[in-house]
C-alpha cells in the first residue's frame, strides 16, 4: 500500500533530519523541527477525536493550553522556590519533565472529560461551536488570571530537565520529543485496531448499529475525546517547554484552528496525516515568512488550493484516496 510507503518516508525523514541539520551547521533547523514534531503531537491528539471519532472540535487549544500552563505553573514555582500550595497539604513545584507531563496529561484529561460530557449532548455544527465556546472561556480566564501573568504569560529561564538528557541541547530535546511522538503514534495505531477503536469507528459511521450490539456510542466518543484531549495536553506541555514560555495565546481559537489545519492538511483519520500536516505547515511558515511581509496571502492561497483540489489531504494526494487506516 502506498500510504505505508509515505509513512515510512516520513518516519525516516524525521529521524534523519537532525543529522542533516548538524552536518549543514543549521542548529536552528533542529529547533524548527522540534516545533513541527510537537505541533504534530497536538494534531495526532485531535485526529483521534476528529478523524476516528468524527468529533470536530474547534476547542482543542483548551487542552493544549492546559498542558502548557501545567508546565508554566509547576516550573515557575520550582524556579522561585515558592510552594504551589501549602494548605491542606504541601505541594512543591517541579522542574522534572516526567512529573510535568503526568500532571499535564491528567489535567487535560480531566478537562476533556468535563467539556466532553457537556459538549457531546450536541452534534454537528453545534458541537463545533460549543467546543469553541469552552475554549474561549478558558482563554478569557487565562487573560485575567493575574497570579500567572495574565496576557503576559509565564516564562521560565531554563528548560525543564529529563533524567539522562541535557534538554538545553537542541538535538537532545528534539530526540525526546520525537520519541514521545512515535510512542503516541504507536499507541494510536494500537488503539484504532483494538476493539475499542473498531467500535469507535463504527459509532462514527452508524451509531444505530453500535447501539444494537449493546454499546453506547456517546460513551465511546467521550472516551476518544478524553484520550484526544490528554495527548494534546501533553503536546502543550512540550510546546511550553520548547518556548520556555506559556501564555493565553496557546488557548486562542486561532490555535485550535491551526491544530485542525494540520490534521486536514495531512489527511484526517490517517496515522501520519497530522505529522505530514504539521511538518508542511511549519516549513511553509518558515519559507514564506522570509519572502514577504504579506506571506499570509500566499499561505491562504495555498491552503485553498489544497482543500479544493487535494481531497483527503496531502497524504491522500500522494498515496491515492483509499487505503487509509
Amino acid at each position: 500500500m502506498r500510504w505505508g510507503l509515505v509513512n515510512a518516508v516520513m518516519l525516516i525523514g524525521l529521524v534523519a533530519f537532525p543529522f542533516w541539520a548538524l552536518a549543514a551547521d543549521e542548529p536552528f533547523m533542529i529547533t524548527l523541527a522540534t516545533r513541527a514534531v510537537i505541533l504534530a503531537l497536538a494534531a495526532v491528539g485531535l485526529n483521534i477525536a476528529l478523524g476516528w471519532g468524527g468529533l470536530v472540535s474547534l476547542g482543542h487549544a483548551a487542552f493544549f493550553g492546559i498542558g502548557g500552563y501545567a508546565m508554566g505553573i509547576l516550573a515557575s514555582h520550582a524556579q522561585g522556590y515558592t510552594p504551589l500550595m501549602e494548605w491542606p497539604f504541601l505541594i512543591e513545584g517541579t522542574k522534572s519533565m516526567p512529573v510535568i507531563w503526568l500532571v499535564a496529561v491528567l489535567a487535560s484529561a480531566l478537562a476533556a472529560l468535563g467539556i466532553g460530557m457537556l459538549s457531546l449532548r450536541t452534534t454537528g455544527v453545534y458541537f463545533i461551536m460549543i467546543t469553541l465556546a469552552f475554549g474561549q472561556m478558558l482563554y478569557y480566564f487565562a487573560i485575567s488570571w493575574t497570579a500567572y501573568g495574565g496576557e503576559d504569560g509565564v516564562s521560565i529561564y531554563v528548560r525543564n530537565g529529563f533524567p539522562g538528557l541535557n534538554t538545553l541541547v537542541p538535538v537532545e530535546f528534539y530526540g525526546l520529543c520525537l520519541g514521545v511522538l512515535l510512542g503516541v503514534l504507536a499507541l494510536n495505531a494500537a488503539v484504532i485496531h483494538s476493539p475499542f477503536g473498531l467500535a469507535l469507528n463504527a459509532a462514527r459511521q452508524s451509531p444505530d448499529r453500535v447501539r444494537t450490539v449493546g454499546l453506547d456510542p456517546r460513551r465511546l466518543q467521550l472516551a476518544a475525546f478524553v484520550l484526544s484531549g490528554a495527548i494534546t495536553g501533553l503536546a502543550g506541555a512540550l510546546f511550553a517547554d520548547l518556548n520556555r514560555f506559556v501564555s493565553p495565546s496557546m488557548l486562542s481559537w486561532q490555535m485550535s484552528g491551526e491544530i485542525m489545519i494540520f490534521v486536514i492538511l495531512g489527511g484526517t483519520a490517517r496515522l501520519f496525516g497530522p505529522v505530514v500536516g504539521a511538518v508542511v505547515f511549519v516549513a511553509l511558515e518558515h519559507s514564506l515568512g522570509g519572502l514577504s511581509e504579506y506571506w499570509h496571502v500566499f499561505l491562504g492561497a495555498l491552503l485553498l488550493l489544497i482543500v479544493l483540489f487535494a481531497r483527503g489531504g496531502l497524504i491522500g494526494l500522494v498515496a491515492g484516496r483509499g487505503g487509509g487506516s
Partner: peptide, 9 residues
Amino acid sequence: PDIAVQLAD
C-alpha cells in the same frame, strides 16, 4: 509569543 521565541532561537 511563540513565533517571537522561535525567531529569537
